[in-house]
Amino acid sequence: MSLSLQVLRGGPITAIAISGDVDAGNAHVVRHAGEDALATARYLVLDLHRVTFFDCAALSAVLHLSRRAAAAGGRLQVTVPSPPVALVLDALAVNDTLQVGRGTAEAYAEALREYITVSTAPTPAVERPPATAPVPARPERGRGPRPGLAATH
């Protein structure tokens, strides 16, 4: 079965629904689509429930996108995976790393709630010094003649 991607963009969140086989021959397509999504979104939801084949190259692409999202201050979520995807994820124990298990709508809503929480969190006040000009240092007294005066004897 051929690979099919459907991309849904919504502000800081992008969802990509993937259908068909994801393998070494086309995992780069998933990776590039995810990278394009993360160029404008902080949160990426991958809907993998229609994936019919999923190998280690596919997992590598997904893990790459997860690291990329985290580096940008966001996150990747994998929605309810199909049996072939679940088999690979379980065998390699990466379910917690990828936050697997929610439906697409629930994952999208959770990412949106997290974005709103992060975006509206109060920022700590930055203490700034007063806006005054620096006071020039006074020359020490008793150290030679003052400028402009000739020494008399």
Score class of each variant (00 low, 15 high):
69 A>F: 05
48 L>Y: 09
54 F>S: 09
99 Q>L: 07
95 N>W: 00
152 T>E: 13
134 P>Q: 08
8 L>C: 08
29 V>T: 11
66 S>L: 03
141 R>T: 11
28 H>F: 12
43 Y>I: 01
131 A>W: 00
77 Q>W: 08
110 E>K: 07
142 G>C: 10
18 I>E: 02
36 D>S: 14
70 A>K: 14
65 L>E: 05
12 P>R: 03
37 A>I: 02
65 L>I: 06
97 T>M: 14
21 D>I: 04
5 L>P: 06
70 A>G: 10
149 L>S: 14
117 T>V: 13
142 G>D: 10
26 N>T: 01
28 H>C: 04
139 P>I: 05
85 V>Q: 13
119 S>L: 15
147 P>M: 06
60 S>T: 15
38 L>V: 06
4 S>F: 09
44 L>T: 04
41 A>R: 02
120 T>V: 09
87 L>Y: 10
140 E>H: 14
112 L>N: 08
44 L>Y: 03
60 S>Y: 03
24 A>S: 13
41 A>Y: 04
88 V>E: 00
40 T>C: 05
115 Y>G: 07
141 R>D: 13
34 G>F: 04
97 T>D: 10
87 L>C: 13
96 D>E: 11
13 I>E: 09
68 R>M: 09
149 L>W: 10
110 E>D: 15
130 P>M: 07
44 L>W: 09
19 S>I: 04
18 I>M: 02
117 T>G: 12
150 A>Y: 08
149 L>C: 11
